[in-house]
Design a protein around this nucleic acid. Structure first.
Lengths: 80, 80
DNA sequence: TAAGAATGTTGTGTAAACACAATATAAGCA
DNA sequence: TGCTTATATTGTGTTTACACAACATTCTTA
């Protein structure tokens, strides 16, 4: 119950594999998989590290409510 | 290993007791005590809820590095 | 003075966040 | 074709984030 996340989206944009992200934050590659699948939510420590890798605030990557689609999120910001 | 936090500072400003904060985020009052003492770090879920209560981003309440003093933090923002 | 609120401490128990190993599958490339 | 990389799945084990109870301490406040 859940914390939702956009790890896979940010990871895709950066062209990072799970293994590479895992190494960057110091966890087992499987752990990234568990997070992306929503099997469980990370500790704040891990969340802070992941957010740091992507240069984004924690709230942009993790949320108590489901994320809106990228299309909605981006267009509501008036960007292209 | 540590995640540092400013929960007690924000709680003091609001005049909230641990019990009240605990009820606001749905955990046991003792849990707030453990967090404030640094006995352990919260899940992202709890961190998001606590940050939400104070209307602050997660990074303002939780950090991988020790927080600077309020005096430094506030004066470096040019506020009074 | 007593009584209540806030906090600290210790202890026990459970659930969830990890590590790690093994194996399967699919896609891309030599 | 075989090899590698990325991902999914299953299983076992350890650590830690929690719940809950009991009790001590300090500070108010009636």
């Amino acid at each position: 119950m859940g914390v939702h996340n956009r790890i896979s989206v940010f990871r895709a944009e950066r062209g990072l594999s799970r293994k590479e992200l895992a190494e960057a934050v110091g966890v087992n590659p499987q752990t990234i998989g568990y997070l992306e699948r929503g099997d469980y939510a990370p500790s704040v420590e891990l969340a802070l590290k992941i957010a740091q890798v992507f240069g984004a605030p924690v709230e942009m990557l993790f949320s108590l409510k489901p994320f809106a689609s990228l299309a909605q999120t981006i267009s509501s910001k008036g960007e292209s």
